[in-house]
Write a protein that binds this DNA or RNA. Structure first.
Lengths: 111, 111
DNA sequence: TTTATTCATCGTAATATTGCAATATATTAT
DNA sequence: ATAATATATTGCAATATTACGATGAATAAA
């Protein structure tokens, strides 16, 4: 019926899926990489850089802010965005936790 | 207008977003983790394990197969699914490549 | 050949996402 | 107070995703 049955899964599975969803758009990857490169930037910079409309960039920023991987601080009429280092590391650990569950040396017993 | 503007982004950005999208559902995370635990399983096992309909599981398996993170080998009426170790490692590297772009020691210059 | 088993695909309904114009809000400059 | 600047929000259309029943295809067992 079109609605994800989150109750069937663990909190960890739902959280990992949620973070993956936030990364599941090239504009949001591009925003993150631009933030890494420039350390901080404003909405308008991203409109210039990516070529999407202001409203669209704002929406993508909101989704990234929602999982707390970026943060924004108001400065006059502008909002400076940057990576949230603590959350960045915790999300990194979340993915490493998944990737390290599989031992590729075991590949002999694969199908 | 509702269609992702992939032409605005690099191949690497589109690919990373694509892989993230495949991981962006708790059922697919659960399938991957079950495959890691059991090494190999069939569609029916996952129907039992996850409590989603057979057609739904089949669809999720297809999406995982599409990015090649799992593979299926036919055995009679059954299909044995397992992790693709090579692709697993390349996807792991893809994410590490993103996560290592950000140096969290630099957090002093954050916004 | 008939029946059972297993899985993929099709069709459909419900819901979510993407993108943008228009508008609202809030601060700064004149 | 007015105008300019920067961003968020709203509303809408197009598209994508999620979920499942029903059906089809392919193999195995009777």
């Amino acid at each position: 019926m079109g609605i994800t049955q989150t109750h069937l899964f663990t909190d960890a599975q739902n959280e990992l899926a949620n973070v993956a969803k936030a990364l599941a758009h090239p504009a949001r990857i591009a925003i993150i990489q631009y933030l890494i490169k420039t350390n901080t930037c404003i909405n308008g910079d991203l409109v210039q850089e990516l070529g999407l409309a202001q409203a669209t960039i704002s929406q993508h920023l909101r989704e990234l802010k929602e999982i707390d991987i970026i943060q924004g601080t108001i400065e006059g009429t502008k909002v400076n965005y940057c990576i949230n280092p603590e959350k960045w590391n915790s999300i990194k650990s979340l993915f490493l936790g998944l990737f390290d569950q599989f031992n590729s040396n075991n590949s002999s017993t694969c199908c």
